[in-house]
Design a protein around this nucleic acid. Sequence first.
DNA 1: AAAAAAC
Length: 634
Amino acid sequence: MRTSWADSVSAAENTAAGSSANDGVGSSSRHAKSSYVPPHLRNRPSSSDLPAPGPAPGPAPALVPAPAPAPALSGSSSSNDRPGYGAALGGNRWGGPRSDVGRPGYGSGGRFGGGGGGWNNNRGGWDRGREREVNPFGDDVDTEPEFSELENTGINFDAYEDIPVETSGENVPPPVNTFAEIDLGEALNQNIRRCKYVKPTPVQRHAIPISLGGRDLMACAQTGSGKTAAFCFPIISGIMNGQFPQRPRGARTVYPLALILSPTRELSCQIHEEARKFSYQTGVRVVVAYGGAPINQQLRDLERGVDILVATPGRLVDLLERARVSLQMIRYLALDEADRMLDMGFEPQIRKIVEQMDMPQPGVRQTMLFSATFPKEIQRLASDFLSGYIFLAVGRVGSSTDLIVQRVEFVHESDKRSHLMDLLHAQKANGTHGKQSLTLVFVETKKGADSLEHWLCMNGFPATTIHGDRTQQEREQALRSFKSGATPILVATDVAARGLDIPHVAHVVNFDIPNDIDDYVHRIGRTGRAGKTGLATAFFNESNASLARALAELMQESNQEVPAWLTRYAARSSYGGGGRNRRSGGRFGGRDFRRDSSFNRGGGGTDYHGGGNSSGYGAAPGGYGGGGYSSAWD
DNA sequence: AAAAAAC
């Protein structure tokens, strides 16, 4: 009923502040968590809007989302909010047979009509509305890739082969070696072919079966490892195949089934673009919402229907407070770059979104948490947000390959500009032109970015810049202009350090070296994407001494040539307790802390079924090994 | 210390 959900939302608003006494740490047991009812949902007549907790998410058959009883939305008289491409399908896993009438004007009959679940599915009927959908692949939609084309994409799949992977948790579903082994459905398979993906990356090989098995997932993986597809495929497949209760449709509020949170606007845009490709002609609607852009277009997009919502936290909180979005129907939650989001101070907003609005509990929804590192704060988040999860650690991309050639050059502060100029001239002369060869230059400050951009332009190098002082429009324009090659040099702050997938970045220059080795790893990860080779040059001088040790170790680890002078710096800084990097010596961003006997919370899932190579663990001198997680590193 | 993120 309209009043029902409206009340729910307004109640949520009214009590959000007071409900922050959420149990937080210490209730990692899923039973404790699943019986928890958020304050704003207590005392509701029939608790009819929130699905009751489902049974323990044990090994479930593939393609079955985490089970949950029906929420039995009372009296809603309208259908779900997506344009239907669907044919009816029997049975409704979430809500049982429904008698609701389909929303007129869309598709071919009620998607929930007449006892049929009515969600489109890949076994038929979804194509009836295909003309409606803008083709995200451009012109070559119906071009089936030739085998030779596949080889020409430049994706070096062998480069992924020796990336170490480790899993732990109870009953870990075995990894797959090909997409064909997984029944993702024909529509999705076709999109995978259109994307020219031939073979799953390591994170995909493991994460997709885990997720399709209905399990929660904590994954330590770098961007560039194929994460986006790893969480999108199971979500899209689950939505296509799953039966969901009818979503109430008020005039304004929409009820997505999946939520993907990411730290930056550009990353959200990128995930949205990728997810749209993956969901092309599946009938699954993906919408993005982020700040800095006019909200009206986003509201219109939402009103046209949303299954998967990709968002940055701030804008989502805004939408939730305006009651334009309800999380009541969320079945899939993915948090990307979780460590980054915490670094950026998003924890309160994320906890508000996940714990204090109307999102179903862990175990009812399926949750995937992605993070490059696994520090204490993320472990806490994992305990609070996940239920009986599987831990997956994928080695750093590039850690065991030579995909990225790293160079470190000693450049005094005052020489940096002319040195950069030399590099750019050399690059120009090297004959790489004709083909786009993009250079991404990282600097420390927004001011520095502007002034370097200006200087480059004055000196005949078309450059643009991206940083947080620019408007969202300027940022997006800069990114477009860079990607297109119109300005083949992009000067950036760390806003662009993580996750952005820009093809053809041949060279990453760390004009200013970051203070955190993780940031360095992320920055150089903007090149050498998808198995292509790339070059990363860092300008090192005295002011970077504190990073010398971590940098030298990282380079050594990835089979790079470490200059003798850097080794000397590294030796010096190691005495002074420098190199406070978080994970030197390891090839993973973290390890499953549940394996440590000292960590006792009574939560389940301490069994270790490690099938992977664990040699990257334990060697960390002050990493996460050893059980004690003192905060000495912060 | 700087960066990012809602209006």
